[in-house]
Write a protein that binds this DNA or RNA. Structure first.
Length: 584
DNA sequence: GCCGTTTTCGGCCCGACTGTTTTCAGTCG
């Protein structure tokens, strides 16, 4: 639905429609995307649709049409004049709606291949405002677009940001480098890197030397733009990096501005205007300063700016225009969970199956990272390629884990656990007698990702009925960069987990991330207990916990929403209660 | 097309960079 609304917005823009009308379609797309309740259930009650900010009478009617017929009159109208493939042109650098419209009216170009052909044939040169430079830029953009999906996982992006920061910091007089943009907001994938640089070398009268330093970094592939205090370039992997060098006096305003999100900023600026201020990346300033009075109200830190607006400082993870501004005005933002709140990590593997460290090494590593307890949860036999444990080996493994637990002498608790596979009929692939000896039983649906959606739903629903299952392990098996829709009925499964007090797992490792921030919000609203774990296969994997926490924060989760913020004993107690006797 | 403690009309965030424009349009974040 969000995609169709966004598509309509883009086509309207190409059609040179009223920009504000375009924006309202775009806002509606964002609002729709943020809903945690399926829209299908809302269309019967128009009041609920109208209650969503940015959805008015016209848009509500559009949404009803979309749900009932799959399209809407405005979209059908536009599709008679244009093609949806034109939207791929908009993603090319330098191509905006006006240019796409021009290409279409002058040369009937409607997709990237046609554009490339026309550019190479020299047909673009006869268009107004099109010199050789533009054509070259376009061809380079096409080439890059073809070999690149455009988004990068947050952990990879964070690493690259660190590398670049180190190089920039070599210049004398540069003090701090802060990643802004979606990396700072903790989105699970980012499209580009925004780096904010400040220090004495960034003051206006001397900044050109520092700009020169950044613009000549060895890892630059293509220099895209270079201004007074801004440098944009791409790396060889095509990731775009925007670096801004700003004086310390306006650093807070800049950080606030470049952190976004776009909608958060737009709303914040609207609120600023209502209060008689104007907000830019340089400062929050009074609109009409009196004679002899300075116009700047706040600029050096984000805290000052939000405070001057009568708000709490808003954590970057919440800046997505989903109610955070109003909560901040009311001084009622939640106390979000932090990495320090996490006491245990209860999903990890050892050399017994596909991990690379021993039980003892994992325990020592976790201790070093400040954890109070872990659970060793190696694979069960159905995952043969990981050398999964059968019942006999699993029981031996329990003894080995208990031995390490004793060796650690209470410095850290080591629980015995297992990651069992959920079989076709929904049963687990180890005997109840074995599972009954485990502290933590995680059930995962490893082998069923290719099944039709309803079969997956059925299988998961049957699995959570098993009284020995504590945690539904990476429930979607979803990969961050694949934007496929969820294959099964998430609502149904999460609801059942909540009823049976089965916890759902959020896998902290971005490579295996399970629940998006939206589904985490849904899980919370349905009353699910959530467990965040790293699924560590090595010691380094344990450090991915911070990325998991970021997603939890984006979902507005507090300490109380997450099981493994509890101390060891309380954690075990909070798991689904065992059956009183082992089933035959 | 949305919105309203300046409400049913007339607003709607703000600034930088590029290329080709001789004064600015288009794009971007």
């Amino acid at each position: 639905m969000a995609r169709l609304l966004e598509e309509t917005a883009a086509l309207l823009e190409i059609d040179a429609a009223d920009p504000f009308r375009v924006r309202s379609y775009r806002r509606a797309a964002e609002a729709v995307e943020q809903q945690t309740t399926p829209l299908v259930t809302l269309v019967d009650d128009p009041k609920q649709l109208l209650a969503i900010g940015g959805i008015g009478k016209g848009m509500a009617a559009n949404i009803v049409d979309l749900v009932r017929t799959g399209s809407m009159p405005m979209r059908d109208e536009l599709l008679k004049k244009y093609k949806p493939s034109m939207l791929e042109l908009l993603r090319l650098p330098g191509m905006g709606p006006k240019t796409v419209a021009l290409m279409w009216s002058a040369l009937e170009i409607s997709n990237i291949d046609e554009l490339e052909t026309a550019a190479k044939a020299g047909q673009l040169a006869k268009l107004p405002r099109f010199g050789q430079k533009q054509v070259d830029k376009l061809l380079k953009g096409i080439e890059d677009a073809k070999k690149n999906s455009g988004r990068y996982r947050i952990d990879n992006a964070a690493e690259i940001a660190e590398t670049i920061s180190k190089l920039i910091r070599e210049f004398p007089g540069i003090e701090t480098i802060t990643p802004a943009g979606s990396l700072r907001r903790g989105k699970e994938s980012v499209g580009d890197l925004d780096l904010l640089v400040t220090g004495p070398a960034c003051e206006p009268d001397v900044v050109s030397a520092a700009v020169e330093h950044v613009a000549s970094l060895p890892l630059i592939d293509t220099l895209l733009a270079r201004g007074q205090n801004k440098v944009s370039f791409t790396l060889r992997n095509q990731l775009q990096v925007d670096v801004r060098l700003l004086p310390r006096a306006s650093y807070g305003a800049a950080l606030q501005y470049f952190t976004g999100s776009k909608m958060h900023n737009v709303l914040l600026r609207q609120k600023a205007l209502k209060r008689g201020y104007t907000l830019s990346e340089y400062a929050l300033a009074r609109m009409n300063p009196q004679e002899g009075e300075s116009a700047i109200v706040a600029a050096a830190t984000e805290e000052e700016i939000y405070a001057a607006m009568g708000m709490q400082w808003i954590p970057p993870e919440l800046r997505e225009n989903c109610g955070e501004l109003e909560m901040a005005e009311a001084n009622s933002l939640p106390q979000l969970i932090t990495l320090d709140d996490i006491r245990g990590d209860v999903h990890m593997h050892t050399v017994a199956t596909d991990g690379t460290f021993t039980i003892r090494e994992m325990a020592e590593g976790a201790l070093l990272r400040g954890l109070k307890y872990i659970a060793i949860t190696d694979h069960s036999k159905n995952l043969a390629m990981t050398n999964g444990l059968d019942d006999a080996r699993a029981r031996d493994h329990i003894r080995a884990i208990h031995a390490v637990d004793a060796e650690m002498e209470g410095r850290i608790r080591v629980f015995a656990g297992i990651e069992v596979d959920i079989l076709q009929d929904g049963s687990l692939d180890l005997e109840d007698e074995t599972l009954a000896q485990m502290d933590v039983v995680i059930g995962s649906i490893h082998s069923a990702f290719n099944l039709p959606a309803d079969e997956q739903t059925e299988r998961l629903l049957r699995a959570v009925e098993n009284p020995y299952l504590h945690i539904l392990g990476h429930p979607t098996g979803r990969k961050v960069l694949k934007r496929d829709p969820y294959p099964f009925d998430m609502d149904k499964v999460l609801r059942r987990c909540a009823e049976l007090s089965v916890a759902v797992e959020h896998n902290a490792a971005p490579a295996r991330a399970d629940l998006s921030d939206l589904n985490l919000r849904k899980a919370k609203s349905l009353g699910c207990k959530i467990s965040v774990n790293t699924d560590a296969h090595s010691l380094e994997d344990m450090d991915k916990m911070r990325f998991g926490i970021t997603q939890l924060r984006r979902a507005w989760l507090t300490k109380d929403d997450v099981l493994n913020t509890l101390e060891a004993d309380a954690f075990l107690k909070a798991l689904r209660p065992r059956p009183t006797q082992v089933r035959a």
